[in-house]
Design a protein around this nucleic acid. Structure first.
Lengths: 93, 93
DNA sequence: TTATTATATGTCTAAATAGCTAAATAGTAA
DNA sequence: TTACTATTTAGCTATTTAGACATATAATAA
């Protein structure tokens, strides 16, 4: 269920993209300027984030605007806390 | 800093090992019985968790007992919450 | 010493990953 | 239509990864 999110989160570039998008939606090109990578490389990372449903995209003319899917991020955080936080493992049983 | 932890967390088998160890220390062999994988495969996963400092091991005769490094798990959770939780990105600045 | 048990490590294979350049696509405008 | 811009996709390479089996190591016991 959260497998894709974990995989997406395992890459530092993608984590930075998520942090960037926390400050607001951005164009694929704008996102790419924050990295030393070639633009297609960043595009691939965006595709991974999109496949994990962590971001949503929306075309505006020739631009494609990426936006954080806050719900998924929050759900994942809750799941992570439930499974690895706390102290004794199964307080929900 | 948390790169190793993210990588370790990205594998489902390792996540299950962490969940198992939340219930208490276990022998490498005991851990292995919970999975369909060959013993060396589980041993390799334990080595990854150990490299990420997520677990600590301690020999007891021929056995090696693995234990969760709760501090690292908590630190990672705090870091994840700080970076991906909340709503506006840089409340710590 | 030898034998046995528990675990790790060597070595290989198949699959996945991240990076690149080049080419394709989608939209806009002349 | 052509031309231009923004972005994705194709195709490739190098690296990493997870899995397996075989072998090595470490501790104990006889």
């Amino acid at each position: 269920m959260h497998e894709g999110v974990f995989k997406a989160m395992s890459d530092p570039t993608r984590r930075r993209i998520i942090e960037l998008l926390k400050e607001g939606p951005q164009t694929a090109g704008q996102i790419a300027t924050h990295f030393a990578h070639a633009q297609p490389t960043v595009s691939r990372h965006l595709a991974v984030l999109k496949a994990a449903n962590l971001v949503v995209d929306q075309r505006d003319g020739t631009f494609i605007i990426y936006q954080l899917n806050t719900t998924i991020v929050q759900d994942w955080l809750a799941w992570v806390l439930e499974h690895f936080g706390g102290g004794h493992g199964d307080e929900t049983n």
